[in-house]
Computed example of a mutant assay.
Amino acid sequence: MKLVGTIVSVLMILLGVIWILQGANLLGGSFMSGQSQWLYIGIVLALAGAVLLYWLRRPGALRR
C-alpha cells in the first residue's frame, strides 16, 4: 500500500509541475498553455502530492 501511495503522489507532483509550466506558458503545445487557471490547479495538485508523499514516508505511516 505504501508503494502504491508513493507512486501516486510522485505522479501527482509530476503532473502538477507540467500543468504549472503550461499555465505559465513555459511549455507550449496544448490548450492549457497560457491559461492561468492551470497554473493554480497545478500548484494545488503538486502541493497535495507533496503532502501525501510526506505523510506516507514519515516513520510509522500506515502501521497499525
Rank of each mutant, 00 (worst) to 15 (best):
M1Y: 13
K2A: 15
K2T: 15
K2G: 15
L3N: 14
L3T: 14
L3I: 15
L3F: 14
V4A: 15
V4P: 02
G5E: 02
G5I: 00
I7N: 08
V8P: 03
V8A: 13
V8R: 07
V8E: 11
V8Y: 12
S9T: 02
S9V: 05
S9D: 06
V10G: 11
V10N: 06
L11C: 07
L11V: 08
M12R: 00
M12A: 13
M12G: 08
M12D: 10
I13Y: 04
I13W: 09
I13G: 02
L14C: 12
L14T: 07
L15W: 04
L15F: 13
G16K: 11
I18M: 14
I18A: 14
W19T: 00
W19C: 03
I20M: 13
I20G: 05
L21T: 03
L21K: 11
Q22P: 05
Q22S: 00
G23T: 04
G23L: 09
G23P: 01
G23F: 05
A24L: 10
N25F: 04
N25T: 07
L26A: 03
G29K: 00
G29Y: 03
G29S: 02
S30N: 01
S30K: 00
F31V: 02
F31P: 06
F31T: 10
M32Y: 08
G34M: 08
G34S: 09
G34I: 04
Q35N: 07
Q35Y: 12
Q35S: 07
Q35L: 09
S36Y: 12
S36V: 13
S36T: 14
Q37I: 15
Q37Y: 14
Q37R: 14
L39N: 12
L39C: 06
Y40D: 12
I43Q: 07
I43C: 10
V44K: 06
V44E: 05
V44H: 02
L45P: 01
A46W: 09
L47K: 07
A48D: 07
A48C: 10
A48K: 07
G49W: 05
A50G: 14
A50L: 15
A50N: 03
A50W: 10
V51Q: 13
L52Y: 00
L52N: 07
L53H: 01
Y54H: 09
W55V: 10
W55D: 12
W55M: 12
W55A: 14
W55I: 05
L56H: 01
R57T: 10
R58A: 02
R58N: 00
R58T: 08
G60K: 07
G60N: 08
G60Y: 11
A61T: 06
L62P: 03
L62Y: 15
R63Q: 12
R63D: 12
R63F: 15
R64H: 14
